[in-house]
Simulated scan of single mutants.
Amino acid sequence: MHFLVSSELLNGENEIKLHDLAKRFLEERIFVEFTDIDKAEVWVETLDARTQETWSRVLRHSVHLKSQHNMKKLYLAANKIRVLHNISESVWDGQVTLTLDDACMVLDHVTLIGLENSRNDRDFLLTLLPQRSRERFMNLFQKGRLAFVGGGGNGELKVQLIERAVTPSFRLLSWIMFDNDACYPGHVPQATQDLIQVCTDNNLTFHCLERRCVENYITREIYNLTHPDIKGQKVESIFGLSLEQSKYFNFKKGFGKSKEEDHAVYANLTEKQKKELGRGFGDKLASEVYCAEYQQQIHDIFRALNVMAEFGTKIAHLEQLLGRPV
């Protein structure tokens, strides 16, 4: 995140609070700049030797990054925070403007990822991230600086989002993704509509997948990568579906007894083909495919197929929550 800090806050009374800004900057979590760099340099000279060295490093590196990159343009508007000295309370929506106390609270807040399944959906999400951000994600998770919301399906995710969205820092530091669960083109299940409404009403950053669920992003190339020795008619039938059909087909269960095969999207299939599609790959498909061993290779395939385009700027938004872009 990008913190623009009022130089009027640079005084002995705030020294301890300001330390958190320096710490997160040097951890490459955030970018910090001051409204008056000259005043900041004068303030640094008043500090004890150890603190002075820390802030000198921050100022030097901050100035260097600004000389090499347009930091204001690099960061999305949603990830820019102003920290001012002359406000009585923080403004959390729109242009985020915080008191120093609230800024410190944000710096200490865990990044929260809202998912229906904290294992399979997490691993799918990791395939969407480039290696540096993927490593940051897991490092923050292992250190307890990143946690998950939901984990019990879309109903539980909705309940937890409603409970947590009243907290301004949650709205600022959360990122949510969920399946659309559509069985055919134009189908938007009520549960999906409800989740979208909750996220929209509470100004949360979210993405509803364009395809039925995470398994529907598995291509033949990806399946062959993770299951090189498994062939047969079922594999041929499922990956013989058109792109449009593969967005809605139930990769885990197949058609089964659902009657989904009667929808117009499958009108070109013969009765024999529909019978061959009666069974899917099973409930373990996502955990077998999206595991850590294959995430970089799958990321490269997704990038070649432009899969991340459906997310717009939301992947970049998540990456900026995880760490500094440069």
Rank of each mutant, 00 (worst) to 15 (best):
K17N: 12
L21A: 01
E27N: 08
R29T: 02
E33D: 08
A40Y: 09
A40H: 05
V42C: 00
L47Y: 09
D48G: 10
Q52E: 14
V58Y: 05
L59W: 03
R60Q: 10
H61T: 02
H69A: 06
M71R: 12
L74Y: 02
L74H: 01
A78G: 12
I87Y: 07
E89D: 12
G94H: 11
G94F: 07
V96Y: 07
A103T: 11
C104S: 15
T127R: 06
N139R: 09
L140F: 01
F141S: 04
G144D: 01
A147I: 03
N154K: 15
E163I: 00
P168T: 07
S169E: 15
S174V: 11
W175P: 01
I176Y: 09
C183S: 13
Y184Q: 08
Y184P: 00
Q193G: 05
D194L: 06
D201N: 15
E210R: 12
R212K: 14
E215F: 12
N216A: 09
H227L: 05
G232C: 14
Q233F: 07
F249T: 10
E260V: 00
K272S: 11
E276G: 06
E276I: 04
G278D: 09
F281N: 03
Q296I: 15
H299V: 01
D300F: 03
I315N: 07
L322K: 03
L322H: 04
V326G: 06
